[in-house]
Design a protein around this nucleic acid. Sequence first.
RNA 1: GCCCCGAUAGCUCAAUGGCAGAGCGAGCGGCUGUUAACCGCUAGGUUCUAGGUUCGACCCCUAGUCGGGGCGCCA
Length: 494
Amino acid sequence: MAWLRVVDALKAPAGSRVTVKGWLRTRRDSKADGGLSFLAVHDGSCFDPIQVVARAGLPNYASEVARLTTHCAVECSGEVVPSQGKKGGVEIAADEVRVLGSVEDPDSYPIQPKPHSFEYLREVAHLRVRTNTFGAVARVRHCLAMAIHRFFHERGFYYVHTPIITASDCEGAGQMFRVSTLDMLHCPRTPDGKGVDFAGDFFGKEAHLTVSGQLNVETYCMALSRVYTFGPTFRAENSNTSRHLAEFWMIEPEIAFADLAADAALAEEMLKFLFRTLLAERADDMAFFDERIEKGVVARLQGIIEKPFLRVPYTEGVRVLEEAIAKGKKFEFPVEWGKDLQSEHERFLTEEHYRQPVILTNYPKGIKAFYMRLDDLDAMEACARDGRAAPASLHKAPPGQRQTVSAMDVLVPGIGEIIGGSQREERLERLDARIDEMNLPKHEYWWYRDLRRYGTVPHAGFGLGFERLILFCTGMQNIRDVIPFPRAPKQAEF
RNA sequence: GCCCCGAUAGCUCAAUGGCAGAGCGAGCGGCUGUUAACCGCUAGGUUCUAGGUUCGACCCCUAGUCGGGGCGCCA
C-alpha cells in the first residue's frame, strides 16, 4: 500500500489504497453505523488534514483508536473514498490504524484542541509548530526563502556566503555580540591595564557576530556583478518591539553598474515576485491567514502586485508631513528636514497619505551611513529641477547642510520600513571624506577602500528583513511568531 | 534603554481585606457521518518569588523575576 503525504492523499482518486503517517489534530466519535471515529490527520505537507474514518470493528478500536487525543502519532491505511460529510472531498476508510506514539497525559499536554494565545505558544515553541497557525507560518517561510533564491538565480545573481563572524569593527550598523574564547573571569589586560588584551584571543583581535553582510558582499559584486547574501544577522541592541529580533535573517543583493533607480526597481520587482509566488504556491495557508489572522491580507498582496510603487524623495515626504501637520495632524515627534523620520511619520505616509508601498529616496547626508553615495544636487536644487515645492524646514537649513545621499527606504503599510538600501559611494576621495567626517577608523576599512582604488564602478544594494517580509505577507503581528526559535532580550530558550 | 499593563486550574479569565470560581480543554457516560459539534457528571489550585502590613492577604506595601503593549534604536 502506497505511503502518501497528506497533500497527495487528498488528491488521490477514489478507490486507491493508501497509507498516511502523521499526527492527530482532533478525534470526533459517532455511534452511528455501529460506532466510528473521525480522525483528522496532518503531516505538515499542506494546511488541511485528511479525515480518516475508523470503524468500531477495527481490532484495536476500543483499546487504542477511541482513546486517541490531539497530537498522537498514527499510521493509517485504507481506501480513499468520497466523504459522506457535509464538507465533501475525500477521506480514508481505514482498515488499519497503528498508534506510533501516544500523548502521555492529555490533560496537561500544552497544546489542546482550542484557541491558544500566541504569547502562551511562545513558551512552548518546541510544540507550537503543530498548530494550524505555526504550521502555516513555517510553510510560508520556506516558500518565501525558496522564492528568494529562485528570483536571484533566474536573474543571474550569485549566492555568496558572507561570514557570520567578523573581526573588523567597522560594520557600524548597530550593537554587536562579541565572539571570544577568553576566560571571562581572568581576562588578559592591555599594558596600560585599562582594557582587555584581545591579542591572545582566538582571532588575535576583537571579533563579533555580523550585523550585515553588505561590506563583504560588495567585494564579490566587484567581480561577479550581481550577487546576494541570505543569512543570519545579529544585533545586540536592547530592542523590545514586535518588529525586532536579536537574531534575524536578511537578504542583501548588490548590483554593479547600477544606480539608485536600478536598486529601487530591483527591490520592487523582487517584492512583487515574492508575493506572486506566495499566493500561487501557498494558497491554502494564505486563505487561512486571510480568514483567521488578518482579513484582507490576500487582497492587499494582490493589489500591491498590480500597481507600481511610488518613488518619493525624502524632501517631498517632509513637505507632505508638514502639510498634514498644518491641517491638524498630530505627531508625537516633530518633523524637520535633516532629521530622521520616526515610525509614526513613515506609517502616516504609507498607510494614510499614499495608502500603498512607497520608496522614499535621497535622505539627508547627516542621518545616513558613510558608504552611501553623495548626490550631485542638494535638496533645494533637486526640488527646483523637479518643479517641487520645498518644505518650510528645508528653507531654514543652512545651504551647506542640504546635501543628500542616494539612499532609499521601502515603506509598506502595517510594517513601516521593510527594506533599506542605497547606491554606494564608489569615489575614493568622497568615501574618505565621509569616513573622516564621521571619525571612523580609516585603517579598518582598508580592504573596503581598495575596491575604490582598483576598478571601481557605480553599484548599489539593499537589505530586506526576512521576518518583516513574513509579517507583511501573513498579517502576523509579532516578529517572534514568524521565526522558529526567536532570540530577543532575555529570550533564548529552546 | 524609557513609559504603561499583567502573572490565580492544562489554557483564557473572574473573585477589590473575610469559604478561590466560570468557560474552554481533559476523564467518564449519553446523543449524533462528525467538522471550532451538542447534553450530563467528575477530577483538577504552593493564587510568580522573597519579605512586610493585618486578627485575617489572590486582594494593600517593598524588592525581584518573567510576560505583553507602546516608544526609542533598526531590517
